[in-house]
């Protein structure tokens, strides 16, 4: 842990905290218009909502090593990944509110965020973003750049054909590609033990002759360390890696998920090990920051997120006939 600079730790903390506060506000915003009777299509933020509370180390621990030119693809639960890749927070929030000022002018929604300025995209089909990141890595190699491409996926996606086809390609062509498997234990209601033939997916790296890393218990510091190595190796042309991190899903698969399949004790146990608190107490314990400085940092983070929400809420809706635009360019 000592090898992590204050600058990097503060950066990680900022993104994790921002992501958490963003999601906590989204939890409330999403429920507007959905009470007392829940209706997924009602309220200012309708549709499915997959929140990332608890999964922040996966995103912040690797994105701290990335630059603007590096590509990130993310799945249906993308907010923490987007925030860590520094997607435009105002336009992202506006997109989730279905507003004209959103990243996709209200056409995409929370699962379909595209911010080419920071090379971020995500999508609603499991495993589909993996080959896209392989393509970005291929482009970097063709251009002779030292850029890397990172595909974030859930552990369920490691059993999709696209995962295996993509890893073979990336390994075959020795591409600067990293797949980060955010193992939150659950594919909706199906536990990893019922979906995956090996306990940990890092061992699958052997099938492609590449490097595999495993980060236990949502550890942000270990995520930082293995990601640093994987990114450096990718930049140097040493090929792709698999990083699997055991992470936490504090909430349901989607908001409104009754979660009857999950032990009631699980979430409180996970929350007690909150990774954001771990980073914060480390910063304080190592004398890198005072409580007061952390409070000031939190206040800044909260106001930045609040501003994004205000921007989204106050933005105009698209005109109905805008639905017919942007089919072709």
């Amino acid at each position: 842990m000592k090898d992590i600079s204050k600058e990097h730790l503060v950066w990680m903390y900022t993104k994790m905290k921002m992501s958490r506060y963003f999601e906590e506000r989204m939890e409330k915003a999403y429920m507007e218009g959905k009470q007392p009777v829940f209706n997924i299509g009602a309220g200012p933020v309708p549709g499915e909502m997959h929140l990332s509370n608890g999964q922040e180390p996966a995103a912040a621990g690797i994105c701290v090593h990335l630059k603007k030119e590096d590509t990130v693809t993310a799945p249906h639960r993308p907010h923490h990944n987007a925030i860590a890749k520094e997607v435009d927070l105002k336009r992202m929030t506006a997109e989730i509110y279905g507003k004209k000022t959103g990243l996709g002018k209200g056409k995409g929604g929370h699962m379909h965020l595209f911010d080419p300025a920071v090379k971020f995209s995500c999508g609603g089909i499991v495993a589909a973003g993996i080959p896209h990141a392989v393509g970005a890595a291929l482009a970097a190699k063709k251009l002779g750049e030292d850029w890397v491409a990172v595909a974030f996926i859930g552990e369920g996606a490691a059993n999709a054909g696209a995962f295996h086809e993509s890893l073979n390609l990336a390994a075959l062509w020795k591409l600067p590609f990293i797949v980060v498997i955010e193992d939150n234990s659950w594919g909706i209601s199906v536990p990893k033990s019922d979906s995956t033939c090996v306990p940990f997916n890092d061992v699958r790296a052997a099938a492609y002759g590449i490097k595999g890393y495993l980060v236990r218990d949502n550890d942000p510091f270990e995520m930082y360390r293995v990601s640093k190595e994987a990114v450096e190796r990718a930049r140097k042309g040493e090929g792709p890696s698999i990083i699997e991190i055991e992470t936490y899903r504090f909430l349901g698969h989607f908001q409104g998920d009754p979660e009857l399949y999950r032990d009631k004790e699980e979430v409180p146990t996970l929350r007690a090990k909150d990774p954001i608190e771990r980073v914060k107490s480390h910063l304080i314990k190592e004398g890198m920051a005072t409580e007061k400085e952390m409070d000031a940092l939190d206040a800044n983070i909260i106001s930045e997120v609040d501003e994004a929400y205000e921007f989204a809420i106050n933005s105009p809706l698209p005109a109905p006939e805008d639905a017919l635009e942007d089919m072709f360019v």
């Binding site: 299509g41 056409k107 639905a323």
Partner: peptide
């Protein structure tokens, strides 16, 4: 549906 993907925003979706 007028040959566009289904848009997210309610106002757009209702239109198509």
């Amino acid at each position: 549906i007028p040959d566009v993907p289904i848009p997210y925003s309610s106002v757009l979706e209702k239109y198509v």
